[in-house]
Design a protein around this nucleic acid. Structure first.
Ligand SMILES: [Mn+2]
Ligand SMILES: [Mn+2]
Ligand SMILES: [Zn+2]
Ligand SMILES: [Zn+2]
Lengths: 147, 147
DNA sequence: TACGCTATTGTTAATCATTCTCAATAACAG
DNA sequence: CTGTTATTGAGAATGATTAACAATAGCGTA
């Protein structure tokens, strides 16, 4: 995936807010933009380290906040202690199906549910900003484990 | 609300698992069973205290785990630091609409969504056990605040 | 290019909800 | 009533995330 355009967007946004386009921020955005996984801050920390890029964990956390705020990533909490983050740059909106045995995460898209959610918001006079929709269960593989 | 039948259920379950029917467990179940709110462990701790019932926070946490396990309560995480718990004893299943300004929580029931969830589970071969479905936004009152 | 202002970083300590440890106590079966 | 063992309370420990702060690096300007 070509991350250049996103870096340009990021640069523009940072400038507009009088924030700086630092090497750490660039490397972190590149890392998450080129991944399709659901990463923890520590994952990013170690991936960068392997590539010889040093950025402290605190900086990763700070940068993720920034990226969430500007819609580059989505923060995900799937009931582990730690938060996960996913690339929100491209691809359509989806929610998650999570196996509580093996931790496998499947992404699903269900437009009918999205529409119903909007209706519920309208019904109660809410201006909706986001939603969390996670289905938990046992995946096919884990059901077939014979131990 | 008459909590007697639930206490009897609880007693039976505890005995079956060689666990003890202690005064703390009874008081905690009574407290949550007679509330319609979404309580934190600390809320329960202080409510009991006001009634002259002493139970440590650690015991509240331990008992909530037990009550979750046996379906008396549902654990809820709405993005605050602390977990909340709600009476699951009676009333139909619902999910939540949460105002990010004032923290107000509205319960909604949408059977069509429940059905679609089941279909998604089936589609991916999952045996579903639970789901989290939370809509976040700004409630009507908070939208009308003119400051 | 050099200078100066100030946002950012890394380090380390602090938070804070929750869990753990363990000795003292209370349930409950006999 | 007694013995066994689950439970409790107190306080320490954990673990993810945040905060404090001095050193540094971006970036606008001359
Ligand atoms: Mn995803
Ligand atoms: Mn509720
Ligand atoms: Zn699985
Ligand atoms: Zn509100």
């Amino acid at each position: 995936m070509n991350t250049e355009p996103y870096l340009e967007d990021f640069k523009r946004i940072l400038k507009k807010e009088n924030l700086r386009y630092t090497s750490q921020r660039v490397e972190i955005l590149k890392e998450i933009a080129s991944s399709n996984h659901h990463l923890e801050c520590e994952d990013i920390y170690f991936s960068l380290r392997e590539k010889g890029v040093d950025a402290s964990l605190a900086t990763i956390y700070r940068t993720m906040d920034l990226l969430v705020k500007h819609q580059f990533v989505r923060k995900l909490n799937i009931g582990e202690g730690r938060a996960r983050y996913e690339n929100k740059i491209d691809g359509e909106h989806h929610d998650h199906l999570i196996c509580t045995e093996c931790g496998n995460i499947i992404e699903f898209v269900e437009n009918d549910i999205e529409v119903l959610q909007e209706e519920i918001g309208k019904k109660y006079g809410f201006k909706l900003t986001k939603h969390i929709h996670q289905l938990y269960g046992i995946c096919e593989d884990c059901q077939n484990e014979t131990d």
